[in-house]
Design a protein around this nucleic acid. Sequence first.
DNA 1: TAAATATACATGTATATACAACTTAATTTT
DNA 2: AAAATTAAGTTGTATATACATGTATATTTA
Lengths: 238, 238
Amino acid sequence: MQKSESTPIYRKLLDDLKKQIDEGEFKKGEMLPSENDLCKSYHTTRPTVRQALSELTNMGYIVRQQGKGSIVAEPRRGLGILSVSGVTAGVGDQNLKTVIVEKPVKQEWPAELLHQLSFEEKEAGCIYFTRLRYINNIPILYEETFLSDTNLPRFTSRSLENRSFLKVLYEHYQVEVVGGEQKIWAIAADKNKSKLLKLKLNSPLAHMKRKLRTNVKDLNIYSWLYCNTENYYLDDYF
Amino acid sequence: MQKSESTPIYRKLLDDLKKQIDEGEFKKGEMLPSENDLCKSYHTTRPTVRQALSELTNMGYIVRQQGKGSIVAEPRRGLGILSVSGVTAGVGDQNLKTVIVEKPVKQEWPAELLHQLSFEEKEAGCIYFTRLRYINNIPILYEETFLSDTNLPRFTSRSLENRSFLKVLYEHYQVEVVGGEQKIWAIAADKNKSKLLKLKLNSPLAHMKRKLRTNVKDLNIYSWLYCNTENYYLDDYF
DNA sequence: TAAATATACATGTATATACAACTTAATTTT
DNA sequence: AAAATTAAGTTGTATATACATGTATATTTA
């Protein structure tokens, strides 16, 4: 994966530092190089460096202390995406089944993505599909996925069934997820979701809106997740 | 530059805009004055104005669109509790109020911590207290906290009211959170929680069980969180 | 009239610089 | 030896400026 020359300096610095923290090169409690040192390394000036550090702070990767420096806050395992785990044991591949509910179609971008779309994303239009994930043959997770119709990916339904969607993206198109964010709510199941997940109306559901950034410019994956947490939970390590 | 006031210019601008949005002076979907206009109003320059707008963006108050302007966003804001830094990291201190519901008392460890306690933790016993956190005077988060009665911390109720609990631990006892894990469910509010959070019975709640590991051996902080996500959400970056 | 072009204005990125405020460690004074 | 001071280094705040890039509208052109 290579960064185009149009990638802003602060973005490169941000991604570099983030990667180094993720991979444990900078460990929790350690200090990052000072702003002035980073200026020298990246041949830039403090405001630019500070923009990167400021975003790292917002993401919770570092804590900055006046007079002292930038302290690494919390190493994250892997991508840090909330995963679904069982109460008893981990969920192996065997017990996991993924079924397409709605095949990929081109449609309008939804209004409530919570993220501003770039021009290219809007231009390209939106591919939309939905899937239902079963654990031990019980529907646990309903997932609506939106991504821009840029360039490459032409999905067959089959390619989304049993393998991870992200795995397909990586193996076929060298698309990698480099970061993202998610927002989480508890909501009451509406008619549609309760039917899909075989739950009573108004059952509590964990709802997530995710944006996954990739190494391809203007290719972000947006998904809305609805998870039955009666017997499973979402977990996270930090 | 003269400092007749001690509060930074960007802070004032930030607070002013935030207040105007909170109070509905700027409504959802409307445009804020342009950066240059704000420069003139506040007799300052773009970088300073942009610092304020940037923080407003992080707080979810506005969305900025290149070429267009700053648009007032949905008044939903992230709590940031998925990171170790605690609730105060996500929402400004100003509108956050913490109230002790049950003062710290020594009691038995609960059975459903989901984590195995060490011998020393069991030996030391458990300090328990509960708090209710308000944002803009609305109860949003109910928190039950358990920690072992090891060594140091003797909390007064007051020390837990307005400042972050973790901050107190750090400043008074040099206790730092070095990692942890959390599990998340969506649950229906029972009688107790619905009363505390002023919700209808069975309203969906985000429920988390967290274990925070510290730099002190056998001092872990366990907490059970119950969060009303009607108007706020939990968020996470990776 | 419809399409292409120019324009004004918005935010995005970046450089260069200055001083304030805080932290830490070394130095000086008591 | 202990306390106070100094100095060096760090982040925080701010000014001033320049150009790039995206949006919307007015203008020109076909």
